[in-house]
Structures are given as structure tokens and as C-alpha cells.
Design a protein around this nucleic acid. Structure first.
Lengths: 200, 200
DNA sequence: TAATTAAATGACCAATAGTCATATATTAGG
DNA sequence: CCTAATATATGACTATTGGTCATTTAATTA
């Protein structure tokens, strides 16, 4: 009876070890620059074994994106739990997203790579729903304008913040040089804009 | 005297023919799914010839991104020329960007692929500067809030709009299904938000 | 313990980006 | 006009890498 469970657990552990190895290799060399041979070596397994667990290289990257989504969702839920008023919850979620980018830029890139996919392909966690929840609570407690549609607003905030992070960081060298702008200024300017847009 | 010029012209034409062929193949099969052999066949040249003009496959895609930037910049400049007041210019630029996405989604994708690069690597045209120009004119004519920083605002609008287009369209199936949202609603809701954010 | 099942290996394969010796086309100079 | 020099294009080839699968090894079950 216990054998099957242990083996399942071991299989899960192996799967996670492979994903860990892939994170190391993909994050240091880029998805295109990384080879499955290198991942296999990092995992101390043969390349063929990787394909027992993941059908394609991209599926392995998808598993990494799943981790990113789980982590981001947890961060959002923490942000909500730390505040009472909706406007502050949304602000804290914005901060959490930016903190996520700073701490896990490679996870952010993995999310970008997979943004044409449904989140449910990777995990049942959903950061967008956490954001909807926070906006709703703000509308209910009166801290967020009641005329806003929570869902549309959430989608827009999500899109806007992702877009800003992309611009602020992916183009930060060019922006610094041509315009003496630094990314943090763009981020905080944008957060202020969003705040004033939402506040009742 | 005339021979060198004609040859230079022919060389430019060949280069453009190759880019045309690459657009066809890359846009129909995706960058990863497309092979240089297929591009060569579409261009009616040998594969080796492609490498006389472009060092790597990605450089060929970069030339496509350059076209996208030129086109978008032209659209932005037209939007400016069509209006007098800055607030309307910015609105028309927003519409132009969205129209660009609708008409040339593949160009939009090419821009996303290259957003970690400097625009100057591809072309001297710069859509961001057109946007800065429109915002400045709005601040000068009083139709846009004077407390806004034109450059930062432009960067933010650029990032937000790109982010929204990505979310609205790349996730449109999931959003429709889970939430009965359609992309156009998200886009116009967002444009309204931006408008009220800017308007003096 | 032997048979069965599960997991891992590593040699192999096909595809493709990129290379470069060779072939072909064009130009310039006598 | 002809030939040598220069420019351009070709296509066979190479190295690499994602993916495959027959075989080996390990674990479990009867």
C-alpha cells in the first residue's frame, strides 16, 4: 500500500529536481541558449529521462511558468491579507508585483513567454482573481470608485503593470542614456497614476 | 558611375525581397516554426545567399521589426498631423497603435520580440518621440494637465498600451470564456481611463 | 526467487542554423 | 571585344540539438 505512495512521491521529487535544474540552466543561458543536455547534466540524469517527465523543452519551461504563477498569486494573497481597505490592497498588490519582478526577473520572463497560454494549463492559482477580489473589497468598503468594473479594471491593471515593467526594465539602458530616466521613476510615477485613477 | 549605383539599388532590392519573403514565412509559421530553407525558397534564392545579407536568422527578424517601427512611427506622425490639440493627438495616437495592432498583429509580435533591444538598432524612427511631441503640444495648448512630465508620461502610455494589447488579445480566449469579456471592451475602457488621466 | 513492471540510459536520428569552397555573373581595363 | 578581377550566388557539407526508442537496470509483486 505504502509503496505506491512513496514511488509517487519520489516521482514528484524527481520532476521537481528536473524543474530546479532547468531553472538554473534556462535562467543563466536563456531558453534558446540552453540545451536539454545541459539540463540533464545539472539534474544528474540522462537526457532521455527528461522526456519521461516532460514531452518537450517548452513543456519544461511551462512548468517553470507554473511555479511563477503560484508564487505571484501567493504574493498577491499576502498583500490582501496585510491590509483591510481595498485601495490599500490594490496598492500592495502593485508593490508585490514589482517586488516579484525585482526578485524573480526570470520568472517574470517566463510569464511573458507564456502569456498566450491559459493560466489553467499551468496551475489552478490565478493572480488575476486575487486582484479582482481586492478591487471588489475596495468598492464595497468605499475606498475605490464604485463606478469601476472590478473585472475589467483588474485586467487593465494587470496589463498596464506588466507593460510598464517590460518597458521600464527591458529598455532601461536606452531610456537612461537617451533621456536620463531611471526605471524606478517610471514605476512609481505609474503607480501614482493608477492610485489616483482608482481612489474614491 | 551609374553601374555602382544600380548595383547598390539592386542589392537593396534583394535585401528587401528577402525581408518580404521572411515576413511571409515567419508570419505564417512563427519564428521558431519557420526555417531559413523556407525563406530561401520563398525568396527564390539559395539559403546561403540569405546569410550574405543577414548574419543570423534573428537579424532577419530584426529587419522586420525595423519595418514595424517605421510603420508605427509614420502612423503616429499622421495622427499628430490630423489634429491640432494635444489631447486629441494623444487619443489619435492611441487609436493608431490599436489600429496598427489590428492590421499588423505580426508586426506587433515582432516588436514584442525585440523590446529588449534599442530602437536605434533597427531604424532611426522612434514612435516614442512622436508621442512625447504630442503630449508636449497638449501641455502647451492647455488640453493636457501641465503637471505631467511629457517624457515619463509618454513612456508610461507606451508601456500601458503595449501591456493592454498583450493582455487583451493574447488572453482573449481565456477572458471570453471565464469572464465573458471581449478585448474591445478592455481596450476602450483603458483608453477612457487614460483620457481622463490626461485631460486638463 | 522469478516474472513482471517501472524507470533510466545512451546510442541514434532527423532537422536546421550556419559555413565556405566553388560556380556563375558582372565589371573594368587594355 | 576579350580577359582578368571583382562581386554575387550556390549547394554540399558540418555541427548541434531536440527528440526517439531499443535496451538495460532497478524495483515490485506473486
Amino acid at each position: 500500500m505504502g509503496t505506491a505512495e512513496r514511488r509517487q512521491r519520489e516521482k514528484e521529487k524527481r520532476r521537481n529536481d528536473i524543474i530546479d535544474a532547468a531553472e538554473k540552466v534556462f535562467f543563466s543561458k536563456g531558453l534558446d541558449g540552453a540545451t536539454m543536455e545541459e539540463v540533464a547534466e545539472e539534474a544528474e540524469l540522462s537526457k532521455g529521462t527528461l522526456y519521461l517527465y516532460f514531452q518537450r523543452k517548452d513543456d519544461l519551461y511551462g512548468a517553470i511558468a507554473g511555479r511563477a504563477i503560484k508564487l505571484l498569486t501567493a504574493r498577491f494573497e499576502e498583500a490582501i491579507a496585510r491590509h483591510v481597505r481595498g485601495i490599500e490592497r490594490v496598492g500592495a498588490i502593485g508593490d508585490a508585483y514589482i517586488g516579484f519582478y525585482h526578485q524573480y526577473p526570470d520568472y517574470f520572463n517566463a510569464l511573458l513567454h507564456h502569456q498566450g497560454h491559459r493560466i489553467e494549463e499551468f496551475t489552478s492559482d490565478n493572480p488575476l482573481e486575487a486582484l479582482v477580489k481586492a478591487i471588489r473589497s475596495g468598492i464595497e468598503d468605499g475606498s475605490i470608485k464604485s463606478e469601476l468594473d472590478p473585472l475589467k479594471t483588474a485586467v487593465i491593471l494587470w496589463g498596464q503593470t506588466s507593460g510598464i515593467l517590460q518597458v521600464a526594465y527591458m529598455r532601461c539602458d536606452a531610456l537612461k542614456e537617451a533621456y536620463a530616466i531611471n526605471p524606478e521613476e517610471i514605476i512609481s510615477y505609474c503607480l501614482e497614476m493608477i492610485h489616483s485613477m482608482l481612489k474614491a
